[in-house]
Nucleic acid binder design. Sequence first.
DNA 1: TTTTATGGTAAGTAAGCACTTACTTTTCGT
DNA 2: ACGAAAAGTAAGTGCTTACTTACCATAAAA
Lengths: 211, 211
Amino acid sequence: MTAVDRRQQILDVAIQLFSQKGFRGTTTKEIALAAGVNEAIIFRHFATKRELYSAIIDQKACSMHMESVDAEIEKAVAQGNDRKVFETIAFHILSRHEEDETFMRLMFYSALEGHELSDLFFRNHVSERFGKLATQIKQRIAEGVFRKVDPLIAVRMFFGTVMHHAIMNRFFNQSLGAQKLIISNRIAAERFTDLFLAGITNNEMTAHKRK
Amino acid sequence: MTAVDRRQQILDVAIQLFSQKGFRGTTTKEIALAAGVNEAIIFRHFATKRELYSAIIDQKACSMHMESVDAEIEKAVAQGNDRKVFETIAFHILSRHEEDETFMRLMFYSALEGHELSDLFFRNHVSERFGKLATQIKQRIAEGVFRKVDPLIAVRMFFGTVMHHAIMNRFFNQSLGAQKLIISNRIAAERFTDLFLAGITNNEMTAHKRK
DNA sequence: TTTTATGGTAAGTAAGCACTTACTTTTCGT
DNA sequence: ACGAAAAGTAAGTGCTTACTTACCATAAAA
């Protein structure tokens, strides 16, 4: 096996293990075993365990191209289709978290253990998205379509709803007994958007139109 | 120092450290050092590190008496004051998480590392609260005050909004730059409740009343 | 054919881990 | 005042950790 391939394989294995047991909780021996190589190999490719983690951060940070989704959202915004905007965002977040199990765990371990991965992600991706959505909401308020609410509060409510649902599904749904919520991501995105839009839409205007 | 006091002191120190660095990330030596005693003392009071963690679980589980808040909510429910119900819940969650820094961290470490603390908490406290609120929402829907929505979805949206805000405040607010949201818990509870109620309230009925 | 870089391993090292042992000091009911 | 239980300590135990060293195998360049 070539060096580049081996390096990538070690990275993949490490991502898996770090996300399961955290940085501190994962041993280099385990990584070596899972990768099917001698432990010393890891230290040939990465000087320290810490450097291996940094490589993971680089990889995860680069692999975050959400251009296709961004385009879809932009399109919905251009159409003035608020429902589609929020549904798209919600569905994207939910399905992304579902298909990449490791991501949320890596994030939370990073936040708890104080590594830079989570900070990087929020700085480079989340903050921008929050800003864009806040601007869009501000726009719709100016147009009189949405009520006069603090856009950042509304943004936080929407992302909170969706993120919380994703977190619950991954971590706590089993503990909820009768209150367990089992619905498809598509339906969840629809329902959350429905409730959110109902809360933020300016009914005075709708009522006015009706007259 | 008496045995009971020492035991309690070790517990307090351990809670602090476990919440900061996780169960795996905290060493018994550190706990001993922070408590100002010899490491062996810990093992006189708790047979294993694991047993120390179990004692923490017991303590945290017991110290969760929310009767006063529950009473306040019950009262608001009896009055039919929906706004007060949701504001009380939101404010309680937010202020609790703010004053007890350790709690959320312990929860997340527990969920990630797979201990029973988080499961216990959700089983014994969260699930019940979700259930109660869902019942209340169902009731208001039957009365025609709320729109016909899935009560569990609405519950998840509301708790999600509030919990997410608490999580952001504790972990990620610094990483958000311009999208940082700095408001008091009181105001946050108000605004979230406002948006939520606007989304779930049956406007047909309001419109009908107006006529 | 020899050299040399490359991919790989077995067997370490020192430090750190949860936990123990053997022992001393303090507290307190009688 | 005294014996015993309880509170406390120093110095370990064996095991695991991140990381190293010294050595082997292949294969292309010289």
